[in-house]
Amino acid sequence: MAEVQQSDVSLRHLRERLRLSLACAAARLAIEDAPSRPVEAMGLRFDTPLGIAAGFDRHGRLGRRAGSLGFGFIEVGSLHPAELSGLLRSTGTAQLGINLGLTPGIPEAVFHEALAQLWPQADYLMLNLIHPACAPLLEPGARSHLTRLLASLRERQHRLDRLGGRQVPLAAKLRCLPGDLPLDLAALLRDLGFDALLAAHDPGPPATPQRYRHWQDPAVQAQACTQIERLRSLCGPRMALLSVGGIQTAAHLNDRLDAGAELVQVYGALKEQGPGVAGRMLSRG
């Protein structure tokens, strides 16, 4: 049984590498003008509101070149402090977000150094609070520790901005599931002055065909939009909202934007529909 499971994991990783290679090749060969639908969020200008979620391009092989496919931004990672040296650099029009995993047991100073190392490369920085390894940080008894960590990283980002002469927004990614919308954590991010919140409406990997079909239910899409509306009401107009999970069509994209998200990320749709998905979603907007 263990060998079968290992074989399944290896096959899944192979498919993921092939999909990433296909996207890289499509970006190199793109000859048509990429769709344009400009939007401003987090103090940044994005050519389109559609981006690629973390996990598809962990180390930046595609990176900023995603802009030639119609994506306004791409989020690389999630990375942990020991993995930062493997991050690749690229040129292109897509804004680049870097996703940093917050893992318990790592000294706060290590995260400060990671933030300083990533700051020059990033257009925005995302703190990942949905990885299974960070679950202990979300326990009620760890709330004071989490608050101190987030506050110190926010202050570190402010210092980097002042010293570097530019602003690199700081955001955080929260899991937002049916019946479990973390309004208390969203309020904490708001009160700490975070620039953005990324709501992840999907339970996470592995991304299966069954779950992909599940998101085609209009009621499931409506539930995600309702969550965005509640988060928008809580966070107010200053804090940008991003939404990821289940976006497969132009209608899904527009519904999330109408609900209050400024930016939307895709992952499963890119895997299932290929690198032309951005053009299809945006041209039907």
Rank of each mutant, 00 (worst) to 15 (best):
E75Q: 15
P203T: 01
L177K: 02
F46N: 07
P35T: 09
A224K: 00
G105K: 03
M42L: 15
H214D: 13
R211F: 13
A278G: 06
A114T: 09
A30Y: 04
D57F: 04
H201A: 09
G72M: 11
G260M: 08
A26D: 12
G164E: 01
V266C: 08
H252P: 01
A135R: 14
Q273H: 14
P203K: 00
A171D: 00
R154G: 06
F71A: 07
S36P: 00
D123E: 13
L129Y: 11
P136S: 02
G204M: 01
G279N: 09
G274S: 04
L79P: 06
A186N: 07
L257A: 07
L118G: 07
Q157C: 15
H13V: 09
L174F: 11
K173G: 06
H59M: 13
R15F: 04
G51W: 00
V9A: 15
A172E: 06
L138K: 03
A196W: 13
A186Q: 14
D180K: 14
A278C: 02
F71E: 03
T48C: 12
E83C: 11
K173Q: 13
H131C: 04
R28T: 08
E40D: 02
L138Y: 08
E108T: 10
L282V: 01
P104K: 05
L129C: 10
A186Y: 03
L174E: 04
A41P: 04
L69G: 10
